[in-house]
Amino acid sequence: MTDEEVFKLQHVSKEYKMGQVSVRALQSITCNIEDGEMVVILGPSGSGKSTLLNIMGGMDTPTHGQVYFQNINISTYSAKELTLYRREKIGFVFQFYNLMPNLTARENIELATELVSNPLDLDEILAKVDLKDRANHFPSQMSGGEQQRVAIARAIAKNPVVLLCDEPTGALDYSTGIKVLTLLQEINREMNKTVVIITHNQPIAQMADRIIKLGSGKIVEIIDNKQPLDPSQIRW
């Protein structure tokens, strides 16, 4: 494992029970993600990509295998250690934004900044996501794109090492989706954050440095993309 590696996954499997059905969501996943990379995990629904993201994000633990984050095995972390890990290292962006409906945009971001000792400047972030004049609006008063930008702002405000994005454009129309992707690329390039996006939407993969293709809980293919596209060039 090199210093540049943020994640290193070794034979990671996950099984869980939903009601009376046992689901094998992941089967022996081995891969790594490097510092500052833009990675897209691509796969159809049910391929296990959300599970993989949850495990990397310390929201879930693998049934078998090891997950290393910056050379430390997090798969043996206790719930308390995982909480601290999520708090300090990870920023999440969800498909349905998951904003607190009774907090304003600014307060939603503050909900995250209150947790850490060296958060990013709130106004700078609001400017970055272009929501300065919407800061005091509640989620219900904002469009989907605006809500997702608040969610991204909330994720990076803690100044995390990695941004994990679960179908960030899944609930958005094309042009809004592109804007969100552009924002993510800027965060990757300008702020030098590792960004992992999971999606079922093939064209989005073109903006990645590396593409991990998943199918039925297994890695199908890993592609190195020598010439990532600018989101504005992507069409779907």
Partner: peptide
């Protein structure tokens, strides 16, 4: 779940 994901403790 979201709050937990953000890193708030139990």
């Amino acid at each position: 779940g979201t709050i937990k994901a953000l890193g708030y403790s139990n």
